[in-house]
Amino acid sequence: MDDIRVLLFFYFGEAVLLFYTGLAMFELKLSIPRLLCTAGLYSLCIWFVRGLYAMYNIPLGTHTLILVVLSILLMKFIGKVNWIFSVGAVLTGFSLILIGNWFINLIIQQINLTWEHILSSVWLHILFGYLEDTFLILLLILNKIFGLSYIKLFELE
């Protein structure tokens, strides 16, 4: 299992970003208690799934698909968001995380680091985790400052 500090300082924050930004693209908002509850449960899911993968020596990668499904279910049943928006919000968030992961891999290769080294250090794990969420944060900023959303982009009602 990952360090508890990673759960508290990274997984939880990423979960909040993921749900908040994803829903913001549909001009939707969860109440603070519901957002925190959903994010909290999701961060526990990440922690648990990654722990299982480590326990059974399964290489990470397929855990993403499991987490996508779990986050959609959490957003639907805990966040009480319609299926259509749950799916759209989660896929938006995860797509941005994957793009972030791509860029982080390029950076890691440049600075001669490895993921094993990063994951073995709590604070490096947290730092690079948030670096991976750069595009998610960027989209959130664009949404807040310029009102960027799917609704405005496609002139939906």
Partner: peptide, 26 residues
Amino acid sequence: LIIFLNIVLCQVFLNLYIAVSYLNHT
């Protein structure tokens, strides 16, 4: 339209996932 958007997002996500998985050698 939102449903079609979701289908597009799904395809984008899956393509990104496969690309990143390939790069990460998973």
